[in-house]
Design a protein around this nucleic acid. Structure first.
Length: 481
RNA sequence: GCGGGUGUAGCUUAGUGGUAAAGCUCCAGCCUUCCAAGCUGGCUACGAGGGUUCGAUUCCCUUCACCCGCUCCA
């Protein structure tokens, strides 16, 4: 009976996401549109936090990675070079019996998967008319629709990085090995939307292309054999296997730093038969979603395929002159490529907790607590006056809120009973709540100018002096003080 | 893309060939000295289009969206 339970959990997560403003269906008032999703107020904060943390760790905290922000629409030749155009330009025929998809111009020479003695045309099954399949969203640049100005919405952000490799390496004064990273939207027309936001037609990627020396150059310069070299403390003369392993470990520890525990993740090494033709190795970082173990990020060792392709198609040299090795070569690349929306979904699933908590009357009630890691939580601090109808409490609470809101996302609330406000913050995953009470105002002189600081996960409250509030919160949120 | 299921307020459900009920949420007010208390009032729905009918949320058709399985995709 695992099936209904899984469904039930996802339905609760979907419902909460809508009710609290994490995720809405795109264009919902018109009935929605298949494969497109919007982020509401809290979702937008959550997503921004995740992207900021990725950008922070990928480039600002590293000397060997720089950023890029490229356009979604690029010259169509980019997609010829990458192989995205050619694969899907042929009309295809679907077989309704065996579910196979075949090139329309080859069905009389392709064996039927079910009756291998016969060709697809001869097997007698029901087939569709030949249809064009486009991997990419197609559009026209300029107001006139002609074949000359066809362009595509990018199906991945990676190609922009390869296309700008020359410019960036010329101006950034970085020596190979170095990387270029980018966050941005990508679009895929052929996929089947499924599992809430997990597979969407419009999605956001966070990609790094990390350019390294070809193995022979690295080893010539004293690089250790890949197999038994350490994968921490990067060295310029590492080969691709070391860099690949290094990035797998970097990425895993990053996931843990945003609150996805190690035991919720799995590594999947793609088999030789699954690898793309240009890839030497690909490791998928998988998360244990309620609907199955699914990929969050792929870390591929892509050889120098992409840059070589662009060199051929553009006629511009992609070679890099290595001062140390006194050699000219096209760099190889390691590509950690993550899906932002999948990560958001994983964080929401991971945060979702139900608990039976005794109410004010001592009756256990079902509560939902979103246990987001403080670094990603959409709201960091809730600020409340204990009572709404005491102006001096309200004024003081406003003062505290105004002082805190410039430091992190805060939420001021005075509606209803205090317990209800705590519960509301628990449900959106706010790690801390600050309550201004009569002691703050000096009712009990011993506690004057202190507030209660309530912890989401333990529900414990401690009295903190106003002087110490900001540093205490920063400490609790893992921010530099 | 194929097959199955579902569609009534923000959520969870009720109900009917004569345009709809409730609980929770939400909003306003009162009250409340720390965990969804109480009282009063309020907003909000039959996914969309067409057909049958005097009249459709209800019956029929189409479509859209979501969920499940396969396929696809990575």
């Amino acid at each position: 009976m695992a099936e209904p339970k899984v469904n039930e959990l996802m339905e609760k997560i979907v419902s909460l996401s809508k009710r609290r403003g994490f995720i809405f269906q795109s264009s919902e008032i018109y009935g929605g549109i298949n494969g497109f999703w919007d982020y509401g107020p809290l979702g937008a904060e959550l997503k921004r936090n995740v992207k900021d943390l990725w950008w922070q760790s990928m480039t600002r905290e590293r000397e060997d990675v720089v950023g890029l922000d490229a356009t979604i629409i690029m010259h169509p030749k980019v997609w010829e070079a990458s192989g995205h155009t050619s694969t899907f330009s042929d009309p295809m025929v679907d077989c309704k019996d065996c579910k196979g998809r075949f090139r329309a111009d080859q069905i009389d020479s392709t064996p039927c998967p079910k009756k291998s003695s016969k060709m697809v045309t001869e097997c007698g099954s029901d087939k569709t008319e030949p249809r064009a399949f486009n991997l990419m969203f197609k559009t026209y640049v300029g107001p006139v629709e002609t074949e000359d100005n066809v362009a595509y919405l990018r199906p991945e952000t990676a190609q922009a990085i390869f296309a700008q490799f020359k410019n960036v390496s010329d101006i950034s004064r970085h020596k190979v090995p170095f990387g270029i990273c980018q966050i941005g939207k990508a679009f895929r027309n052929e996929i089947n939307p499924r599992n809430y936001t997990f597979r969407s037609r419009e999605f956001e990627q966070m990609e790094l292309e990390f350019f390294i020396k070809p193995d022979e150059v690295a080893h010539e310069q004293g690089g250790a054999p890949a197999e038994d070299a350490p994968t921490k403390n990067p060295a310029p003369n590492w080969g691709w296997k070391q860099w690949h392993q290094y990035w797998v470990e970097q990425r895993l520890s990053w996931y843990e730093s945003i609150g996805l525990p190690a035991d919720s993740l799995e590594l999947y090494w793609q088999g030789d038969d699954e690898l793309a033709h240009y890839a030497r190795a690909t490791v998928d970082i998988m998360y244990k979603f309620p609907f199955g173990v699914q990929e969050l990020e792929g870390i591929a060792a892509r050889s120098n395929y992409d840059l070589t392709q662009h060199q051929e198609h553009s006629g511009k040299s992609m070679e890099y002159f290595d001062e140390d090795a006194k050699q000219r070569y096209i760099p190889h690349v390691i590509e950690p490529s993550a899906g932002v929306d999948r990560m958001i979904l994983a964080l929401i699933c991971n945060a979702y907790h139900e608990a039976m908590i005794p109410s004010a009357k001592g009756v256990p009630e079902k509560r939902v607590v979103m246990k987001f890691h403080p670094r990603v939580a959409p709201v960091k601090v809730g600020v409340f006056p204990l009572l709404k109808n005491k102006p001096e409490l309200v004024a003081k609470a406003r003062e505290v809120y105004d002082a805190l809101k410039v430091h992190f996302a805060c939420f001021y609330d005075e509606a209803g009973a205090i317990g209800k406000r705590y519960a509301r913050q628990d449900e959106i995953g706010t790690p801390f709540c600050v309550t201004i009470d009569f002691d703050t105002l000096g009712e009990n002189p011993e506690h004057a100018n202190t507030v209660t600081l309530r912890d989401r996960d333990t529900t414990e409250q401690t009295r903190v002096s106003l002087d110490q509030l900001l540093p205490r919160l920063k400490q609790g949120l893992g921010l530099p003080i």
